[in-house]
Simulated scan of single mutants.
Amino acid sequence: MTWQKHLPFKMCFIVWRALRDKIPTDARISQMNIANPSRCICCKNPDTENVNHLFNAGDYAFQLWKHIGGPFGINVEQSFYRQILINWWKIKAPNPVINILVKCIPIATSWEIWRTRCAAKYGNEPINFNNSVCLISFSVLQVIKNQFNNFQGNHSWNKVIYLNSCNINFKKTFTVSWLKPPVNFVKLNSDGSCKEGRCGGGGVIRNHQGHLVHAYTVKAGAGTNNLAEALALLHGIRWCIAVEHK
């Protein structure tokens, strides 16, 4: 679930690193015997900055997860960062749109927490809660737009909430066409079925122009669907061999 091909690699990579405690938080740097006072810049009352605090328990992260997860029924109270991700990914999506939302939102949110932390710590950029929500919304809805050409509307958080609450009837259609065989060849199409113990099948044979060469039916007697299909296919092959068709 960590790797979502529709999102930028950097977002998925930061989640992968965070889950393995491989990002340079203050606590991680201190483990390398580098003098570094640990003060989470995202909190009003700074605490030790480790992965779980930065991505979950800290003031900014907790409020962001609470706001983002509320409409989806995600409880962030007394949870660890890993558990929050699992709660998102365990949601049973009723359609492909919500499936993308519940897989991409936690990754986009994690990235935004890390981006905000670094921008505030090293770029003196003020922490802006509303701006973070907008950036998360934009990232996720851009994925929806790329996947579904008929997506319309702005990239606001209200649009995300709307997509989660509305009843989307999604039907995927496929075009199936019959392909003509090569010149001097024929194509055999057969099928069989069984109902109440009585089985039968049939088939049609066409030439390279699509013209009907032969059609047949087969009574298979008692049996199964698989037996009826096999006998129908076998009858067609035998006929082709008998009349020397390729």
Rank of each mutant, 00 (worst) to 15 (best):
W3K: 10
Q4E: 11
K5A: 08
K5G: 07
L7G: 00
P8R: 08
F9R: 14
K10G: 00
C12W: 02
F13W: 01
D21C: 00
K22R: 15
P24D: 03
D26P: 08
I29T: 10
M32Y: 07
M32R: 15
A35Q: 15
R39W: 01
C42I: 10
C42A: 13
N45V: 13
P46N: 06
T48A: 07
N52W: 06
H53I: 02
F55T: 08
F55N: 10
A57I: 13
A57E: 15
D59L: 01
Y60V: 08
Y60M: 07
A61K: 01
F62D: 00
F62I: 00
L64I: 06
H67Y: 02
I68S: 01
G70S: 11
G73Y: 01
V76W: 03
V76N: 01
E77G: 12
E77P: 08
Q78Y: 15
S79F: 04
Y81S: 07
R82D: 14
R82T: 13
I84G: 09
L85Y: 01
I86W: 14
N87Q: 12
P94F: 11
K103G: 15
I107G: 10
A108M: 10
T109A: 15
S110R: 04
W111G: 06
E112P: 07
E112G: 05
W114Q: 02
W114C: 00
R115D: 10
R115L: 07
T116N: 09
C118S: 15
A120F: 09
A120N: 13
K121S: 14
Y122E: 06
Y122F: 13
N124S: 15
E125G: 06
P126L: 13
I127R: 14
I127W: 03
N130Y: 10
V133M: 12
S139N: 04
L141W: 02
L141G: 03
V143N: 02
I144K: 01
I144R: 02
N146D: 05
N150P: 03
F151E: 07
N154T: 07
S156Y: 00
W157R: 02
N158H: 03
K159C: 01
K159F: 01
K159A: 02
Y162T: 08
N164Q: 12
N164F: 12
C166D: 06
N167R: 05
N167L: 10
I168W: 00
K171V: 14
T175C: 09
V176P: 04
L179K: 14
L179M: 11
S190G: 02
S190L: 05
D191F: 02
G192Q: 05
G192E: 04
G192C: 04
K195A: 13
E196A: 11
C199W: 03
C199Q: 04
G200E: 05
G200K: 13
G202W: 12
G202L: 09
G202E: 06
G202K: 12
I205L: 06
I205D: 03
Q209C: 14
H211N: 12
H211P: 02
H211Y: 14
L212H: 12
V213W: 03
Y216N: 03
Y216H: 09
V218D: 08
V218S: 06
V218R: 09
G223Q: 02
G223F: 04
G223T: 04
T224A: 02
T224H: 01
T224N: 01
N226M: 06
N226G: 01
N226Y: 10
A232F: 07
L233H: 00
L234V: 07
L234H: 14
I237S: 06
R238P: 00
C240T: 11
C240M: 10
I241P: 08
A242R: 11
V243K: 08
V243R: 15
H245F: 15
